[in-house]
Amino acid sequence: MTISAQQETVFSNNQLSVEEIPSLQTLALLPISKKYRTLNILSIGLIALVLIGIASALRFQSFWSLPEGLLQAYPYVVAGIVAVGSLWALYHFFADVRIFYAIREQDISKQSGLIFRKLSCQPILRVQHVEVNRGPLDRWAGLASLQVFSAGGEMHTFEIPGLSIERAEQLREFILAHKDIGAR
């Protein structure tokens, strides 16, 4: 094994007791923007409306005739879309207010999940690059999501959704300005 450690110019390595190691339990968690939930529920509503619209257009158009079975299925299809959509929206209603994030000197963390609460912590030292993403609805609502990529792969992209655009940019700047970035 070669030791390829980056030697700091001033190096200190004092003994720490276990209590002194910073703990994830004491993170000061910040909530994401409240608009995020509204936006999600709204977009679910929109998707449901579009789907119902397509089904209705098919049902009530007069260009060609549909088989009897499909005509009978129409109310069930609509009911199904409404049911799935409202369950989905209900999930977001409860889950989205449970997304928190926290910044420490050396890492960023995110807590999310309704039943399975997941706390992921991304050391800034390991960040490869940062992206601020804004979809059309995000732009309209003034939101953005921050994506942080590490060498852990696409599957483990660290993402904080529903940040105000200013906050997202601020976080991005913070990560990029961090002295460890680029240290690999």
Partner: peptide, 20 residues
């Protein structure tokens, strides 16, 4: 778990060694 997660993070952030 908490102790392990904390100490692994501490190891990453305090040693600052390259993973490559």
């Amino acid at each position: 778990v908490n102790k392990l997660a904390d100490s692994v993070l501490f190891e990453v952030e305090s040693t600052r060694r390259s993973w490559m």
